[in-house]
Design a protein around this nucleic acid. Structure first.
Length: 444
RNA sequence: CGGGGCGUAGCGCAGUCUGGUAGCGCACCUGUUUUGGGAACAGGGGGUCGGGAGUUCGAAUCUCUCCGCCCCGACCA
């Protein structure tokens, strides 16, 4: 992409309303624009990152055997009256009336609708287990939206639902989600710690929240620091293997890690003092097992092997997709701007032409751009007439992890500069060598 | 919802107390000189002051009213 042809409205000044770093940088980097309180437009750069995050989630969900689908944002109130949540959910649910005076609502979550789909089409235990998910916009009419995308009213969420014959099967679905979520967050360059949590309005017994540690987090968390050593890495996971998934769950949840909702001071104090940590965290996902809470009132049953009708065991599992952008920025930035992890960066590398219009730097920059595209990479070439300082500042702000600087000084030596946004370190390489290095970094 | 605050050019703000017909910086347009960390000079365009009503010879400024937004608190992916 040529920057001169792109839409990247960066701001030099920080908008007054932005209090936290992710909100400030998302506005300054031209990623989002507020449409009204807690509701944002996703400008091209922000949209690109949102898609990257979404792609990773899709890959990891499908790797775990979960089936993608899509449900509507507007849903009939009748379904929610069946589960009792139309009244229970409170003011947070956005209620709308259509021209026929029918009550509809903007989905804050989708247990009712998926259960309705399930009961209409599944009647045998042989069709289980079944886990489906979607990535769809949600709306919760927060009393006070804040922190930009982190607590918006409209937000983009992955929500998955499992249907199983027994509690044991449903717990395997729970474990699969935990494992797949750990992998998902790691691929985004995040450490998200599963913590025992409170179930809130979704209801249920077993639930873990995934928290990214950050000073600006809204949750107070307490944990054994040993848990921060744990990594999924690139180990092979067989999602059909119940024992293996259970073992991962035990590995990642046996250490003390709780939010303030479930914090137990006595248990916490059993941790050796040097490993005890209290900090703040951003909630980026939650998994629930809630048994027959929805299947029973809504009649989602199957016939078991003995011919008995039994209510299915269910769970639901969410990842805040749009919130993840904020969480990633909170976890990865410096005083100059964002530092994207390679897994979610909007462009793989930036090309900075220090003297636009100079035949030599123009030709080298274009050669770099073409060669990177040839390798299947997506570079952002700053071909504007800005001065070098302004170009560097913009690149630093939007946070591409790798920058290739093409200037007359280095080019006279036959080299360009490849610099890491994260470390600031750079090396001088020929154009071809720089392309190889970037391709190697991305495994392209 | 309780408390606090704001709404003046795309962005950040001054002007409001003490009414006299709108200004600064950045951004934008044109030109010249520049170009390895947010260039300089010259020229130029753009707002009727969140909406409505009122007071007044005259309202960004005073009064009433409506709307929007932000911050602090209790709730939440």
């Amino acid at each position: 992409m040529r920057l001169s042809r792109y839409f990247l409205p960066v701001l030099k000044e920080t908008p007054a309303e932005a209090q936290i770093v992710s909100h400030r940088y998302m506005l300054r980097a031209g990623m989002i624009k507020q449409a009204s309180a807690g509701i944002y437009s996703w400008l091209p750069l922000g949209f690109k990152v949102l898609r990257k995050i979404e792609d990773i989630i899709h890959e990891e969900q499908q790797r775990a055997g979960h089936i993608p689908m899509l449900m509507p944002t507007l849903q009939s109130a009748d379904l929610w009256r069946e589960s009792g949540r139309y009244d229970d959910y409170g003011e947070e649910m956005l209620r709308i009336r259509d021209r026929h005076d029918r009550d509809i609502l903007y989905t804050p979550t989708a247990e009712e609708l998926i259960t309705d789909i399930f009961r209409a089409h599944v009647s045998s235990y042989r069709d289980l287990p079944l886990t489906m998910y979607q990535i769809q916009w949600k709306f919760r009419d927060e009393i006070r939206p804040r922190f930009g995308i982190m607590r918006g009213r409209e937000f983009y969420m992955k929500d998955g639902y499992n249907f199983d014959l027994t509690k044991a099967d449903a717990m395997h679905a729970y474990n699969r989600h935990l494992v797949s979520y750990l992998r998902t967050y790691e691929r985004m360059g995040l450490q998200a710690i599963p913590m025992r949590a409170d179930s809130g309005p979704i209801g249920g017994d077993d639930t873990h929240e995934f928290l990214v540690l950050a000073e600006t987090g809204e949750s107070e968390v307490f944990f054994d620091n040993a848990i921060t050593e744990l990594k999924i890495g690139d180990r092979e996971i067989d999602y059909g293997d119940k024992a293996q998934c259970q073992a991962v769950l035990e590995e990642f949840t046996s250490r003390y890690a709780r939010t303030d909702e479930t914090h137990d001071e006595a248990l916490f104090n059993e941790i050796p003092e040097e490993r005890r940590r209290s900090a703040r965290g951003i909630e980026v996902g939650q998994i629930f097992y809630f048994g027959t809470k929805y299947s029973e009132p809504m009649g989602a049953t199957v016939q078991d092997a003995d011919g008995n009708d039994v209510a299915v065991h269910m769970g639901s599992h969410g990842i805040g997709v749009s919130r993840l952008l904020g969480a990633i920025i909170e976890a990865s930035h410096d005083g100059k701007g964002i530092i994207w992890p390679e897994g979610v960066t909007p462009f793989h590398a930036g090309i900075v032409n220090l003297r636009q219009g100079d035949a030599g730097t123009d030709a080298a920059s274009e050669r770099l751009e073409a060669a990177l595209i040839e390798r299947g990479l997506d570079p952002l070439y700053d071909d504007t007439e800005e001065r070098p300082g302004a170009k560097f500042a913009t690149m630093d702000l939007i946070g591409l992890p790798w920058r290739i600087t093409v200037g007359p000084r280095d080019l006279a030596q036959g080299v360009v500069e490849l610099a890491s946004r994260r470390t600031g370190e750079s090396e001088r390489l020929s154009v071809d060598a720089a392309v190889d290095r970037v391709a190697q970094i991305y495994g392209a």
